Simulated assay, not measured.
Amino acid sequence: MATGSQWIEAARPKTLPASLAPVVMGIGAAIGLQQASIGKSLLALLVALSFQVGVNFSNDYSDGIRGTDSSGKRVGPTRLTGQGLATPKAVLAAAISCYFLAAISGLGLCIWSGSYLLILLGALAVLAAWFYTGGKHPYGYLPGISELMVFVFFGLLATEGTIWVQTDSLPWRTWTAASGIGLLSCALLLVNNLRDIAGDRQSGKNTLAVKLGDKSSRYLFAIYLYGALILGVVSFNLRWIAIVFGVVMAILMSLAMATVLRGASGKELIKTLKQVGQITLIYGVAIGLGWVYLGL
């Protein structure tokens, strides 16, 4: 029987900043456009958080019943199913409950704003989350596809959806910042997969990190961070605050980059995962505040 702390760890709280960042940034854009709604903002946050936790539990369930998490070479957070700490049915129920909460909150948000197309996009997001590791042919076991999905759903859709339901507009600068968040989300995924290369290779999980190998994956991590930095600076339309933002983010990103490029592995990369999550949240909050102060 899993303890409460084990359930919390299995929910992977270190990944939650990745779901918060685009919504916070989107709220900042709505405020900058003077069309923000407290109620819609809170619903968007609830959708993001419950969806992210649902993804984490469904991955725990699917990888667990497939045997991927049974490899002795895998490290990282608690895996309830793979480690036999909770029954697969209990973990699946937790995942479904989170998706249900996200769906109800998202449906209410779409109806409130009249953005009915987002209902379809939300349904696609849930399907993408489930089939990441679920089903007979999970795309999370294939190189490149999971990165594309993370970029689209945790970067573009999460940011632009939050802005659209409040403003009915999507200024071009929000797309550059949303792309930056997408790249940081890809960096989070890469660190996670880099940590598990040995176990994933053994279990047949052919992630992008497995395909590229250890060294190239580390260089790709740096590219993700540098790409996000450039896009973030551009999102300020090269105004003075862009310099401050760029310098601060470059320092924070350099610390994470140095750890990865020097060959950190195992539990060291768990710390890096948390660090990248914090960078992602700071990135989203900083840009959001910049838009609040300077407008769009």
Rank of each mutant, 00 (worst) to 15 (best):
A128Y: 09
G227M: 05
I27N: 05
R66K: 15
L43S: 04
F236L: 03
P171V: 12
D69V: 05
E9T: 13
G246Y: 03
L117K: 02
G144A: 12
A103G: 13
I145Q: 07
R262P: 09
R12V: 08
L238E: 01
G54C: 04
S37G: 07
Y226R: 02
L238V: 11
D196L: 02
I104K: 04
K205H: 08
L46A: 14
L33D: 06
L127F: 15
G182T: 06
T176K: 00
Y141P: 05
A10C: 15
G4E: 12
S113K: 12
G204T: 05
L109P: 07
G26W: 01
G246P: 11
L42H: 02
D196A: 06
G295D: 06
L296P: 06
A103C: 14
M253A: 09
I65V: 15
L289C: 11
A198Q: 09
Q278E: 04
I31R: 01
S58K: 01
I243R: 01
A94W: 13
Q34L: 05
D60T: 06
W7N: 14
A187S: 13
A44M: 11
T78V: 15
S58M: 15
I241N: 10
V53S: 01
A2V: 14
C186K: 07
T133C: 10
L49N: 03
L194Y: 06
L46Q: 07
F131E: 07
K205I: 07
I197G: 10
G26L: 07
L261I: 08
G108V: 10
G28T: 09
I230V: 14
F151D: 13
D69T: 03
R12K: 15
L183Y: 02
S185F: 02
R195E: 02
L261H: 03
L225I: 08
L101W: 05
K271P: 02
S169A: 15
P138H: 09
